[in-house]
Amino acid sequence: MEWAKDNIRANAIAPGLILTPLAKTVSDFHRWNPYVTGTSVLGLKYKDGIILAADMGGSYGSTLRYKSVERLKPIGKHTILGASGEISDFQEILRYLDELIIYDLMWDDGNSLGPKEVHSYLNRVMYNRRNKFNPLWNSLVVGGVKNGQKYLGMVGMIGTHYEDNHVATGFGNHLARPIMRAEWHEDMSFEDAVKLLEKCLLVLLYRDRSAINKFQIAKITKDGVTISEPYALKTFWGFSAFQNPSKGAEGSW
């Protein structure tokens, strides 16, 4: 077994990395597994535009390896992008988009790519990479405002994509979407929207072990993009369910 020998080398690069017949080499391993990952991204439409929220953690397996990863980025004038999943792949995507936006700008003819175009382009990129069995290991949230139109969409690792009034990747889809479905409404003020997102972030912080208490919020309106400085939320760990999680389920575990 040639590949088994490589395990020693692989282990030096990523502790716990196991090579298998499917992932015979270290580069194969990278193809099928993420290294450093970011967790959920949340996004929702509000009265004047779109806001996205994400924490700044970068997990190396179950180790919280990086704590200042920027996962929300502006793309051109009308779009913001948030990513969960492999950080290096996200940064590669940012390089693609940089090229795209610069090329778009170089026409210098007054036309520019909006969030809809960026979303569609990203979908093609993700879908093409999966067709080559070499996926970009991310879930992306695309938001933006152009010509008074708000836009919010999602693209998954293998090219699943859709639009909605609120979206969330990963754990967020399980834990935050239900809250957003209950509380979101079309003409939310910015303050209400931030409040809702922070409520969701807090739930995720409590229940998603990869989430960290250091967040950024990105806002886009017709006036442009603002990405907040990193900040933390006030937590309360004194809930009785946290103190004694198995209370009320005696004997089960």
Partner: peptide
């Protein structure tokens, strides 16, 4: 329109 799901701006086509 396949890639961007939007119509190609006329000025670009002309160039």
């Amino acid at each position: 329109s396949f890639v961007y799901e939007s119509p190609l701006p006329v000025a670009r086509l002309v160039v």
